[in-house]
Design a protein around this nucleic acid. Structure first.
Length: 691
DNA sequence: TTACTATGTCATGCC
DNA sequence: AAGGCATGACATAGT
């Protein structure tokens, strides 16, 4: 199996790559579905989940085989963007069919071009871009990207490729998630490593002082900083370029969610910094830090965007978040921003505002305060999650890996509404069908006994199914929605074996009123229940139907009309008791069945709700992160523009901005400076932070 | 033959 | 107290 798996996957993936290079899209699903059912598992892993193993192996394969880049032209770039969008769409929409696309990814051997962005170019082989294009976790499930974006809670990634390779068996297993990552690593927003040289380099070179010097200081591209402001409106160019790419993306995925996800404004945000020249790849920067820190140079902030396409794509949120000043204030309150916005990577950046290593500016604010408060574990507790599930979910958040809240974790999740209920619905449906079948069988004898109902006056007792079915609290018609169940009928009259009949039963079965029926007596005998046989044997002068269903008063009156022996009376009472109990048992089972079905529906609904809430949570977390980044950026802008009496900028290591609850921003000394009675300078700026 | 399902029946508790 | 209902447990027959 293993050899087959390896052989097949290698061959198929390589072939797919070749086809992809030729512009042919290969639909693997056909092959997966038709001939070898296990092949789907071979390629995609169990439950079509894109396993981590394959995730690693793709990288392994690409790395090992050293796929070389083609000359990437602008068209190919857009094609790559389209493929990226397709991959995203696949991830989002839970594509019914598997489509494997291949891309050529390479690392610039010189690294000069790719050096500008973390994760760019190095994502494949180096994986050393820290949080760059390589993620440790390979969860390729539904919410992968969204959860990826939650860099605020993402655990640091050492970016060591070897760490991801261990245990990899299929060398060429390809997952969509991996493709996405590769694409992100190859064509990150603003990335220039694999970017068409004709485009990006032209843009980059067009900016003086923003050369691609690998070791160049990651100067902040804040438009407000005169020293770093490029005479060239680089952002505008990038916006134009990104708008084109967005149109490309829209072609693939026109959903509204994609706008939030796929990256409109997020691209813009990323584009603001995407061409930060010579921004070195901080190999040691954790994603956590990357997303929260790096204010001064923005490259860490940017790197998170690079890593998180969905994050970068949060344009709508990005623009909406600042408007929500209330929420922002409520979130930040009068937090002393001095300890919040201090970028950890300020030192060595060449920016004069840079200072020694400083705490993560927003980490303490959002990560610990916000994200902890709405931790998944809390959610798990509130929603009754399985602790294991919750921890796993949180772990995947931390690992910044993909996650399918629907299919992957919740056994039933995959909400039927969306992706969530895939597995849940499947499991539930299977059980549901079984239950339905059971229930239907139990109550399918309605039609079966119509004949007996019509045969009024027959000696044999026939339960009034129509009566008790109507009498039951549930409409029996609901059991008929499964047509095949109508044919399910059972004759449990226990008279199949004549030897089992009471010895006093008359040999001639035609003693009853039904004897005149056209049916053969033997057949009629078989249709009689044991009590009917007994009644006939005891020569009970009325039908079992009357015995059972007459009201007690009428029943007693009926008994009084006849001179019955003690044995006959006992049998009649037993017949009545058993008949009523039989109906009661049927009703009881029906109720039980309905209860189970209702519970099952409730479970499905709750699972859908859970999935929906989790998706909303992911969106909220994304929004929070975007707001955080926006505040970070604004902080940088404001702080960078501040000048003292001599016109010198303030050192971020010594000063910080404090955000007041009333919207004011105070410049305060970072250090408590107990020696100094008062701050050397305190500026109060009434700034409207809202855009 | 065995496992499972559907149904009937009994015992019991409750109303 | 009797009758009826509900239900768990068991038996039986069928698949």
């Amino acid at each position: 199996m293993l050899s087959l798996k390896k052989y097949f996957t290698e061959g198929l993936i390589q072939f797919t790559i070749l086809l992809s290079l030729l512009g042919v899209r290969l639909d693997v699903d056909t092959y997966l579905n038709s001939q070898l059912p296990p092949l789907r598992e071979i390629i995609l892993g169990q439950s079509s989940a894109y396993t981590q193993t394959q995730f690693h192996n793709l990288r392994n394969t690409l790395d090992g085989y050293g796929i070389h880049p083609k000359s990437v032209q602008l068209d190919s770039y857009f094609s790559a963007r389209r493929l990226l969008s397709q991959v995203r769409a696949l991830d989002r929409l839970q594509v019914p069919s598997t489509e494997v696309s291949a891309w050529l990814v390479h690392r610039d051997p010189e690294g000069s071009v790719s050096g500008g962005q973390p994760g760019a170019g190095s994502g494949l082989q180096d994986a050393g871009a820290g949080d760059g294009g390589v993620r440790e976790s390979g969860a390729e499930q539904g919410f992968g990207e969204e959860l990826e974006d939650l860099g605020a809670v993402a655990a640091p990634v050492n970016g060591d490729l070897t760490k991801e390779v261990p245990g990899a068996e299929d060398q060429t297993a390809l997952s969509l998630e991996e493709c996405l990552r590769l694409l992100e690593a190859t064509f990150p927003f603003g990335d220039n490593s694999e970017f068409p040289a004709a485009d990006v380099s032209a843009l980059s070179e067009a900016v003086p002082g923003q050369s691609r010097a690998p070791g160049g200081p990651p100067s902040l591209l804040s438009p407000l900083l005169a020293e770093t402001e490029s005479p060239f409106d680089l952002e505008q160019q990038w916006q134009d370029l990104m708008s084109i790419m967005e149109m490309q993306a829209m072609e693939v995925n026109g959903t509204g969610a994609e706008s939030l996800y796929g990256g409109t404004g997020g691209d813009l945000l990323a584009s603001n910094y995407s061409l930060a020249p010579g921004t070195p790849i901080n190999q040691n920067v954790s994603l956590h830090q990357a997303s929260l820190g790096g204010c001064s140079q923005d490259f860490s902030l940017f790197s998170s965007d690079m890593e998180s396409p969905s994050m970068a794509g949060g344009s709508a949120l990005l623009q909406l978040a600042p408007d929500n000043s209330t929420g922002l204030n409520s979130t930040f309150g009068s937090t002393n921003l001095s300890g919040i916005f201090f970028p950890p990577q300020m030192n060595g950046t060449g920016n004069e505002t840079a200072g020694p290593e400083l705490p993560d500016p927003l980490g303490g604010l959002l990560d610990e305060a916000m994200l902890d408060e709405i931790s998944l574990m809390d959610l798990a507790i509130e929603e009754g999650f399985n602790p294991v599930q919750a921890s796993q979910l949180e772990e995947e958040f931390d690992s910044d890996s993909g996650l399918s809240l629907d299919s992957g974790h919740s056994p039933a999740s995959l909400s039927s509404s969306e992706a969530s209920s895939s597995s849940s619905s499947s499991s539930s449906s299977s059980s549901s069908s079984s239950f339905s079948e059971e229930g239907a069988v139990g109550y399918s004898s309605d039609s079966e006994n119509v004949d007996f109902e019509e045969a009024e006056g027959a000696v044999g007792y026939q339960p009034e199914y129509s009566k008790f079915c109507r009498m039951s609290y549930q409409d029996p018609a609901q059991l008929h929605y499964l047509p095949y169940l109508e044919h399910v009928g059972h004759n449990h009259t226990y008279n199949m074996a004549p030897a089992a009949l009471d010895p006093e039963e008359p040999k001639a079965p035609g003693a009853g009123k039904k004897s005149g029926k056209e049916k053969p007596s033997e057949l009629l005998d078989k249709q009689l229940s044991r009590d009917e046989h007994r009644a006939r044997a005891m020569k009970i002068p009325f039908t079992n139907d009357k015995i059972i269903n007459l009201p007690v008063e009428e029943f007693n009156e009926l008994l009084s009309k006849y001179q019955l022996s003690e044995a006959q009376l006992s049998l009649i009472r037993d017949i009545r008791r058993r008949g009523k109990n039989k109906m009661a048992a049927q009703n009881c089972r029906k109720r039980k069945l309905d209860t189970i079905l209702n519970l099952e529906r409730d479970v499905e609904e709750l699972q859908r709700d859970k999935s929906k809430l989790l998706r909303e949570k992911v969106e909220f977390l994304k929004s929070i992160r975007q707001m955080k980044q926006k505040v970070q950026s604004l902080y940088q802008e404001v702080f960078g523009r501040l000048r003292d009496e001599q016109g010198r900028p303030y050192s971020p290591s010594r000063y910080a901005l404090q955000y007041g609850s009333d919207g004011s921003v105070l410049l305060i000394p970072r250090a408590p400076a107990p020696a100094e009675p008062q701050p050397r300078r305190q500026e109060r700026k009434q700034k409207d932070r809202r855009k």
